[in-house]
């Protein structure tokens, strides 16, 4: 309990991390609770009179196809978060696994993984994403997450590999190895727990890059056509010329929500750097 209080105090002292996590928590809460409180029928095409400016009846106005914008945003937010978080988890899992293997096994395996991640970082991700997404007949939220994840694992793999290399040479790992601890136990008991702060930091980075790729693909019109997401709202607004027609309430709300998500991720990431490095100094 004292340890928990201590880390809460440390969390509060790190203003950037505190602000970032609070903002993200608030967004997640809205995404979880919001859909329970609204009538999803209002987000269907033709449910209302199109192109109404914001009013008491329609808080965010209505779009060019007669959707109530507030309802649409409340339903789109969880879908967008789902793509980002799912893609973040998948790429984190792949990245950590590859990083651990590269750091522990070394040799040819290490070289292959390192060159692969270097090459993947060089080829512009959006180029491959466009290629894949343009050939998929029906895009769904889950498929989107997998496609995006396949291109955001590199940073995690690099970070974890570098840390594994230094941890492997530490005294306590050497002692455990001399005691006859098997390879897998060595990884999961001695090394992995010490990597947790780096894994947490990598998670934020992977979610950020996954969200960036997702929103970009959706704005190009390659997102899930039959689902409501923030990026698809922007695509439809752009497609129907909402900016040129002055319908600011059509593209404004998705932009504000996306910006809030990215600011939350940036603050969390910046704060986490301080958290992780503090641990390093302590060692």
């Amino acid at each position: 309990m004292a340890a928990l209080g201590n880390s809460l105090a440390r969390l509060y002292a790190n203003r950037s991390l505190f602000a970032g996590l609070s903002l993200l928590l608030l967004i997640v809460l809205v995404a979880l609770i919001g859909p329970l409180l609204i009538d999803p029928a209002l987000s269907r095409v033709g449910a209302t009179i199109p192109r109404l400016p914001p009013s008491a009846d329609h808080w965010f106005g209505t779009d060019g196809q007669g959707r109530d914008m507030f309802t649409t945003m409340i339903l789109a937010l969880p879908q967008t978060l789902r793509i980002g978080i799912a893609a973040g988890f998948i790429s984190l899992f792949v990245g950590v696994a590859l990083g651990l293997i590269a750091g522990f096994v070394g040799g040819v395996v290490d070289t292959i993984i390192r060159v692969a991640s270097d090459v993947m970082m060089t080829i512009p991700g959006i180029a491959i994403l466009v290629l894949v997404a343009s050939y998929v007949r029906v895009m769904t939220v889950d498929l989107m997450a997998i496609i995006v994840a396949s291109l955001s694992w590199m940073v995690a793999a690099r970070t974890i590999r570098a840390q594994t290399l230094t941890l492997r040479e530490r005294g306590y790992v050497a002692i455990a190895r001399l005691n006859g601890t098997s390879g897998l136990k060595l990884i999961f008991v001695e090394v992995l727990p010490n990597l947790l702060p780096f894994i947490a930091a990598s998670f934020v980075v992977t979610v950020t890059s996954a969200m960036l790729a997702t929103v970009g693909l959706e704005a190009l019109g390659l997102g899930p056509q039959n689902d409501l997401t923030l990026g698809m709202s922007i695509y439809w607004a752009q497609f129907y010329g909402a900016i040129l027609r002055g319908l600011w309430w059509w593209w404004g709300p998705p932009i504000v929500l996306i910006v809030l998500i990215f600011i939350g991720l940036l603050l969390t990431s910046a704060g986490m750097d301080g958290f992780v490095n503090k641990r390093l100094e302590g060692n």
């Binding site: 929103v215 970009g216 704005a219 002055g246 932009i255 990215f262 940036l266």
Partner: peptide, 22 residues
């Protein structure tokens, strides 16, 4: 720095609306 976390094209949409439309 905070602005740099936002995707470019969102900044573009706002600039387009303010400086070209309004």
């Amino acid at each position: 720095v905070v602005l740099s976390s936002v995707p470019y094209f969102l900044v573009g949409m706002i600039l387009l609306y303010v400086f070209a439309i309004v």
